[in-house]
Design a protein around this nucleic acid. Structure first.
Length: 596
RNA sequence: GCCGGGGUAGCUCAACGGUAGAGCAAUCGCUUCGUAAGCGAUAGGUUGAGGGUUCGAAUCCCUUCCCCGGCUCCA
C-alpha cells in the first residue's frame, strides 16, 4: 500500500490535511448516496475551498430533504472506523471493475488516465477510482454538513450530461464547523440583494428587465461620493476625464474586432438610416478614437484617458446576480497610451492607485494574480513574444518591487495581452475580482495607432486598460456586504439623524439640522410624536452612523445627547465638539467611528 | 442558455381542490414620552402573466416572465 497517499495528521489544519479530510468525506457521501438511492452513478468528488462536492448521475432528484438521512448514514459509516486502503490497479483491471458495475463515467475517466499509475481506494464497502490523499480511517470524519444541491455539467462542458452536485463542508473540529456555518449565515445576512432594497439603496425592476440597476436616492448619494472621490484622485494622478457615447455604428465594432470575438455578448443592432448601431460593451474603441483624432508626439505620452463609462453586455439569464453580475454597468475605465520605456512607471501608477482604493474603502486584504500567455500556443494570441515578455516582466517587477505576493497564472491571459488581476478579500473572507491592469497588443494594431518618436519616425504606442472599482455596481455591492450596510461616515447616505423627544424641541431641532448641513453633513430629522425608543430602533435599522437625541434636558443644558451606531452614548456633547469630530471623521475617511 | 427549487399585501410568511389570512410596515386618530418596537382603528390582493382541466383553482396541467442555488462565462 502506498503509504504516501494516506495523510497522517501532524497539523490537522494544513491544506493537505484539510483536503484529505474533505476528499475522504466525499467518498463517504458517495457511499451513503449509493446505498440510499440505488441506481445512482458516481463521477468525481474533489475537495474544494471549505469543503467538497460529489457529482452524481441519479434517477432520484436530490433535495435538501435527503440531506439528513445521507448525513446520518455517513456518520454511521465514519464511526465504523474503516481504514482507507489504496491499491494500485492496471488499466484493464480497473476498466473491468467499473464496466462491471455500470459506472460509465468512471470508465470514461479511465480513458484519460491510460498512461498513468492507477489507484483504487476502498473503505468499508465503497471503492473509488482516485489518486489518493485520504485520512488513515473514516474515524477522522465527524464534523461535516451537506449544504446544497445544484446542477453541474459532466466535466464542466455544457454539451455533456447534466449531473446533480451535492455541496458539503467538513472540518477537523466541531467549533470550526460551527464557525464556518456561522460565517455562511453571516454572509446571507449581509447579502447586498437583501440589504440594498431594505435600506432603499437600489432596485432591479422586472418591468425594465433583468440585470439593469435602478439607483435610489440613498444609493445614488453613495455612488456620487464614490465617483467624486475617484475622479478627484484620477485628476491628481494625471488622468484626463473623457465622455463617450453609449452606442456606435457597427463598423466601429467590426474594426475593433468586437463583432467577431464578442458578438454573443453585445446588444444590437439598432437600424438607423440604413446603418446598424450597437450598444457598447467596452469603452476601449472610443478612447482609441480620441487618441487617433490627431497626430501624437512622444512628447504627448503618456496619455491617460479615464471615463466612468456605462457599458451593456448581454449576459445569459442564469448568470445574473444582484449588482455583481449585471447587463448594464459603469466601469471606472481608463486607457493609457505610452511608449515602451514608460510601461513600468505606468503600471506602477495603476498599482499605486489600486492600493489607494483598497485602503480608502477599508479593505486590508487582497490577492493579486499576474496572468500571462502560454508561449506554447503563441498562435492563439495577439502580439509578439518580445512584447509579451516585456509587458509580463513589467507587471511582475512592479509587484516584486513593492514586495506584494502574487500568483503567476500561465495561459490565463486574454488573447490580447498579460494582466494583473486584483481580488479583494472582504470582511468575512470572501474574495471578489475587482481591479485589473491589462496590456492590449491587439487594438493599437487594429486601429493603426501611432506616435512620432524623437527620431521623427512613426511608432506604435502601447496601450494599457485599467479599472479599479472594476464596475461601480459591483464595487458598491461589495461595499454593502463588506460593511453589512453600515457605511463609514464619509460614505453614509444619511450621516446624522436628529430625534426629538417631544414637540417642544422641533424648532431647535430644525435649527440644529441647518447648522449641521451648513457644515456639509447629510442630516435627517425625525420629529414625529413617537416614543424615543421607537425612533432609535428605526434609525438603528437604517444604519445611520450618528443619532442626536434632543429632549428638554438637552435644551436646558445646551448640549447634545449623541448615540453612536454601535449603541454607545455620549451625553453632554457641545454642538461644536460634535461637528469637529464628525468633519474630522469625514475628511480622514475613517472606516469606524473615531469616537473613543 | 442548462439542471433543480421558487414567485400569495410594501416586507416575512400561512392557507395546498371549497368564502385568500397573520405579524411587521403604511394611513388616520389618541399618546408628548430619555436611549432598539406606546394604544386603537382603517386600508391594503385579477395569488408573477397567459391559457387549460373542474360545478369550483393560489392549490392540478401547459406556456411564458422573473427570482434563488449551481454549471458555463465574467467587471
Amino acid at each position: 500500500m502506498p503509504a504516501t497517499d494516506i495523510v497522517h495528521v501532524t497539523d490537522p489544519n494544513s491544506q493537505e490535511a484539510l483536503d484529505a479530510l474533505r476528499h475522504s468525506c466525499a467518498h463517504l457521501m458517495a457511499q451513503a448516496v449509493q446505498e440510499l438511492f440505488p441506481g445512482t452513478k458516481i463521477t468525481i468528488g474533489p475537495a474544494i475551498e471549505n469543503g467538497f462536492y460529489y457529482d452524481f448521475d441519479s434517477p432520484h432528484r436530490f433535495s435538501e430533504a435527503d440531506f439528513l438521512p445521507i448525513e446520518k448514514r455517513m456518520l454511521q459509516i465514519a464511526e465504523g472506523n474503516h481504514p482507507f486502503v489504496g491499491k494500485e490497479v492496471s488499466y484493464e483491471e480497473s476498466k473491468a471493475y467499473w464496466s462491471g458495475r455500470g459506472e460509465n463515467y468512471k470508465v470514461e475517466l479511465l480513458e484519460g488516465f491510460k498512461d498513468q499509475k492507477l489507484t483504487h481506494y476502498t473503505h468499508s464497502t465503497f471503492t473509488d477510482l482516485c489518486r489518493g490523499g485520504h485520512t488513515p480511517s473514516t474515524k477522522a470524519i465527524r464534523h461535516f454538513k451537506l449544504l446544497s444541491v445544484a446542477g453541474a455539467y459532466w466535466r464542466g462542458d455544457e454539451k455533456n450530461a447534466m449531473l446533480q452536485r451535492i455541496y458539503a463542508t467538513a472540518w477537523p473540529a466541531k467549533d470550526q464547523l460551527s464557525a464556518h456555518l456561522k460565517m455562511l449565515e453571516e454572509a446571507k445576512k449581509r447579502d447586498h440583494r437583501k440589504i440594498g432594497p431594505a435600506l432603499d439603496l437600489f432596485s432591479i425592476q422586472e418591468l425594465a428587465g433583468p440585470g439593469l440597476i435602478f439607483w435610489h436616492p440613498k444609493g445614488g448619494r453613495v455612488r456620487l461620493i464614490m465617483e467624486d472621490w475617484l475622479r478627484a484622485e484620477a485628476l491628481k494622478r494625471g488622468y484626463d476625464m473623457v465622455y463617450t457615447p453609449h452606442i456606435a455604428n457597427a463598423d466601429l465594432w467590426h474594426t475593433s474586432g468586437h463583432t467577431s470575438f464578442y458578438r454573443q455578448n453585445m446588444f444590437g443592432e439598432i437600424e438607423v438610416e440604413k446603418a446598424d448601431y450597437m450598444l457598447k460593451p467596452m469603452n476601449c474603441p472610443f478612447h482609441i478614437l480620441i487618441y487617433r483624432s490627431s497626430l501624437r508626439s512622444y512628447k504627448d505620452l503618456p496619455l491617460r484617458y479615464a471615463e466612468l463609462g456605462t457599458v451593456y453586455r448581454y449576459e445569459r439569464s442564469g448568470v445574473l446576480h444582484g449588482l455583481m453580475r449585471v447587463r448594464g454597468f459603469t466601469q471606472d475605465d481608463a486607457h493609457i497610451f505610452c511608449t515602451p520605456d514608460q510601461i513600468e512607471s505606468e503600471v506602477s501608477g495603476c498599482v499605486d492607485f489600486a492600493l489607494e482604493v483598497f485602503k480608502t474603502y477599508g479593505f486590508e486584504k487582497y490577492a493579486m494574480e499576474v496572468s500571462t500567455w502560454d508561449p506554447e500556443k503563441s498562435g492563439d494570441y495577439s502580439g509578439e513574444a518580445a512584447e509579451w515578455e516585456r509587458a509580463t516582466s513589467a507587471l511582475e517587477s512592479v509587484l516584486n518591487r513593492r514586495g506584494i505576493p502574487y500568483k503567476l497564472c500561465k495561459g490565463e491571459a486574454a488573447f490580447y495581452g498579460p494582466k494583473i488581476d486584483m481580488k479583494l478579500i472582504d470582511a468575512i473572507g470572501r474574495p471578489w475580482q475587482l481591479s485589473t491592469v491589462q496590456f492590449d497588443f491587439n487594438l493599437p494594431k487594429k486601429f493603426d495607432l501611432e506616435f512620432v518618436g524623437n527620431d521623427g519616425e512613426r511608432h506604435r504606442p502601447l496601450m494599457v486598460h485599467r479599472a479599479l472599482y472594476g464596475s461601480v455596481e459591483r464595487f458598491f455591492g461589495i461595499l454593502v456586504e463588506h460593511y453589512a450596510g453600515a457605511f463609514p461616515l464619509w460614505l453614509a447616505p444619511v450621516q446624522v439623524k436628529i430625534l426629538t423627544l417631544t414637540d417642544a424641541q422641533i424648532g431647535l431641532a430644525e435649527e440644529l439640522k441647518k447648522t449641521f448641513e451648513a457644515a456639509g453633513l447629510r442630516v435627517e430629522l425625525d420629529a414625529r410624536p413617537e416614543k424615543i425608543g421607537h425612533k432609535i430602533r428605526e434609525t438603528a435599522l437604517e444604519k445611520v452612523p450618528y443619532m442626536v437625541l434632543l429632549g428638554p434636558k438637552d435644551v436646558e443644558s445646551g448640549t447634545l445627547a449623541v448615540r453612536l451606531r454601535d449603541g454607545r452614548q455620549k451625553n453632554g456633547v457641545t454642538a461644536e465638539e460634535f461637528l469637529r469630530r464628525l468633519t474630522e471623521e469625514v475628511s480622514t475617511k475613517k472606516t469606524a467611528s473615531s469616537w473613543e
